Amino acid sequence: DLSALRVEEVQNVINAMQKILECPICLELIKEPVSTKCDHIFCKFCMLKLLNQKKGPSQCPLCKNDITKRSLQESTRFSQLVEELLKIICAFQLDTGLEYANSYNFAKKENNSPEHLKDEVSIIQSMGYRNRAKRLLQSEPENPSLQETSLSVQLSNLGTVRTLRTKQRIQPQRTSVYIELGSDSSEDTVNKATYCSVGDQELLQITPQGTRDEISLDSAKKAACEFSETDVTNTEHHQPSNNDLNTTEKRAAERHPEKYQGSSVSNLHVEPCGTNTHASSLQHENSSLLLTKDRMNVEKAEF
Rank of each mutant, 00 (worst) to 15 (best):
D1G: 04
S3Q: 06
A4L: 08
L5R: 13
L5N: 06
L5M: 02
V7P: 00
V7S: 03
E8V: 09
E8G: 13
E9M: 00
E9G: 01
E9W: 01
Q11N: 14
N12D: 07
A16K: 10
A16C: 04
M17F: 02
M17W: 01
Q18L: 05
Q18F: 07
K19Y: 02
I20M: 14
E22H: 02
E22F: 01
E22L: 01
E22N: 03
C23M: 02
I25L: 01
I25S: 01
I25E: 00
C26R: 00
L27S: 02
L27D: 02
E28G: 02
E28K: 00
L29S: 04
I30G: 02
I30S: 13
K31Q: 05
E32I: 02
E32N: 04
P33H: 04
T36H: 00
K37C: 05
C38S: 00
I41F: 08
F42C: 00
F42R: 01
C43V: 00
K44Y: 03
C46G: 00
C46D: 02
C46N: 01
L48G: 08
L50E: 03
L51P: 02
L51W: 01
N52D: 12
K55Y: 06
K55L: 05
K55Q: 03
G56A: 02
P57Y: 01
C60F: 00
C60P: 03
P61A: 00
L62R: 00
C63D: 01
K64P: 02
N65Y: 05
N65L: 03
D66I: 02
D66W: 08
I67H: 00
T68H: 07
R70P: 11
R70S: 15
R70M: 03
T76I: 10
T76D: 03
R77G: 15
F78N: 10
F78V: 15
F78C: 13
Q80A: 05
Q80R: 09
Q80I: 06
L81Y: 07
V82D: 00
V82F: 02
E83A: 11
E84C: 08
L85F: 15
K87F: 06
K87Q: 11
I88F: 11
I88T: 02
I89P: 02
C90T: 14
C90D: 15
A91D: 02
Q93C: 02
L94M: 06
L94Q: 04
L94A: 05
L94E: 12
T96I: 09
E99A: 03
Y100N: 10
A101T: 09
Y104T: 12
N105D: 12
N105G: 04
N105L: 05
N105P: 11
K109Q: 08
E110S: 04
S113R: 15
K118G: 13
K118I: 08
K118N: 12
I123A: 14
Q125S: 13
Q125V: 02
Y129W: 13
R130A: 10
N131V: 10
K134L: 07
K134F: 02
K134A: 15
R135A: 04
R135I: 05
L136N: 04
L136Y: 11
L137H: 13
L137Y: 08
L137C: 08
Q138E: 09
Q138A: 14
E140N: 10
E140Q: 03
N143D: 05
S145R: 10
S145D: 14
S150W: 06
S150Q: 11
S152I: 02
S152E: 09
V153M: 03
V153Y: 14
V153F: 13
Q154C: 07
Q154K: 12
L155M: 15
L155G: 04
L155S: 13
N157T: 06
L158F: 10
G159M: 04
T160Y: 06
T160M: 06
V161T: 12
R165C: 09
R174T: 11
S186K: 03
S186E: 10
D188T: 13
D188Q: 09
V190L: 02
Q201T: 12
Q201H: 01
L203N: 15
L203T: 14
L203V: 10
Q205S: 13
Q205F: 13
I206L: 06
P208D: 04
P208C: 02
P208T: 07
Q209H: 08
R212F: 10
R212D: 06
D213I: 03
D213S: 06
I215L: 05
I215P: 04
S216E: 14
L217M: 13
D218W: 05
S219Y: 11
S219C: 14
K221E: 08
K222P: 13
K222Y: 11
A223G: 06
D231C: 14
D231L: 08
V232F: 08
V232H: 04
T233W: 15
N234Y: 11
N234K: 06
H237I: 15
H237Y: 12
Q239R: 13
P240V: 07
N243Q: 14
L245R: 13
E249H: 07
K250S: 14
K250N: 09
K250W: 05
K250I: 02
R251L: 08
R251Q: 05
A252E: 03
A253E: 12
E254T: 08
E254Y: 07
R255L: 10
H256C: 02
E258G: 10
K259S: 05
Y260L: 05
Q261M: 06
G262V: 05
G262F: 15
G262I: 06
S263A: 07
S264C: 12
V265C: 10
S266I: 11
N267K: 06
N267G: 14
L268C: 03
H269Q: 03
V270L: 13
V270A: 08
E271N: 13
P272E: 15
C273D: 13
C273I: 12
N276P: 03
N276D: 06
N276R: 03
H278K: 05
H278V: 07
H278T: 01
S280V: 01
S280Y: 11
L282Y: 14
Q283G: 06
H284L: 11
E285V: 07
E285G: 06
K293S: 10
D294N: 14
D294L: 11
D294Y: 06
R295Y: 09
M296P: 01
N297S: 07
F303L: 15
